[in-house]
Design a protein around this nucleic acid. Structure first.
Lengths: 200, 200
DNA sequence: CGCAGCCTTGATATTTGTCAAACAGAGTGG
DNA sequence: CCACTCTGTTTGACAAATATCAAGGCTGCG
């Protein structure tokens, strides 16, 4: 596939500029991790989803609301101008179908997260997050998972507070389900136990 | 536009059959209200979204997870076989684009709901729901809004319990923000106050 | 060293859930 | 027409989960 985008780098904490100079863009994450966020006017914050390498990022529909996209860690992504991308899609109907699939996969993840936020306990939420990160990062059982989020960001993703995340994560450690070599890494010791802790 | 679907009726409480006889289907809601639900194995339930008249319903992507769709009240919808629908879409590229837009609108609503579930208080949640129903049903200010949900279903949508929904709804009534002529109807007395109660 | 940011832990407060009871309306059958 | 029951709602007292407040620790860095 011909490359049509340009590479862009984001330092941790930087927010992606949708309207770069003139026109909205879309892109693909190459390395790092982005967080899609929303917030209330009094400062309460919710992370709606994570973008990990390989994932698509962008405002595909002109009508869709633009959410804030911020780099959780230093990241590089490949961005296209929206207009040029639209032409390209127009010439490749297959691609539009693939995008539709991608959109629905994202929707499915959004729905899982709604179940998590609406009905899971604090312990189940942090176990679910660790499990998701373990599965999406494709690290083999027993390997160290890099956590692209601080405790505070995990809290904003899970609808909890920093302190509760910290307590529940150490509870999983005490139970022997995970090990925490350092605050930004985790090792799943017993994936089955983690799955049980995550669900119900 | 030529009609290609058949009409199907669902009584309140009935679950939509995805695999009718042979093949998955998609459709459009004509009258009534559907709830898209997910649940945990121990019975905890979460309503992920509402389908109101005019909305699209279906599993567009073969890869997307199929969620349970149940009629909240007696409903009628127009359904197509997936295969025939796919052909039709293939012949009308415009349509696929419209569907993509629709999917992103739904995603945006899903994200609003995540913010609600993760970060809003109980009172803000029920106010948000009443506001959404008022706005989506297009009833003028002061008119009676038909609530297509029981208190229990509202609770499952908002990630609360029946009792909490009941208490917060009567609190809004006591504040003069809404009136409750009967449990299945509501009148917004002060939309601005409701908006304030819903947000932050 | 000493600061700054992030993490952990503890004590306490607040919100929301749980359990229980009573109430209201709709349908049903005597 | 009147019990009677069934389902959904409201309300109260209490319990449990999580948030808040506060302190202290660790690590990296100027």
């Amino acid at each position: 596939m011909k490359r049509l985008g340009r590479t862009e780098r984001l330092r941790a904490g930087q927010t992606f500029r949708w309207e770069d100079d003139e026109v909205a863009v879309v892109g693909t994450l190459r390395v790092g991790a982005l967080k899609i966020g929303a917030s209330l006017s009094d400062g309460r914050e919710q992370i709606l989803g994570l973008v990990l390498p390989g994932d698509f990022v962008g405002r595909l529909s002109a009508t869709g609301a633009a959410h804030r996209v911020t780099a959780a860690v230093d990241s590089t992504l490949c961005v296209f101008r929206r207009s040029r991308f639209a032409d390209f899609v127009h010439c490749n109907p297959e691609l539009e179908h693939a995008l539709l699939d991608r959109a629905f996969a994202e929707l499915a993840r959004a729905r899982d997260r709604m179940l998590l936020l609406g009905r899971k306990t604090a312990g189940e939420r942090v176990a679910s997050l660790l499990l998701e990160l373990a599965e999406r990062s494709g690290i083999p059982h027993g390997g160290r998972i890099a956590l692209p989020l601080t405790r505070g960001e995990m809290a904003d993703l899970l609808g909890l507070t920093i302190e509760t995340v910290s307590r529940k994560i150490t509870a999983l450690q005490r139970a022997g389900t995970v090990a925490l070599p350092d605050p930004r890494g985790a090792i799943v010791r017993d994936r089955e136990a983690l799955r049980i802790a995550a669900f119900a």
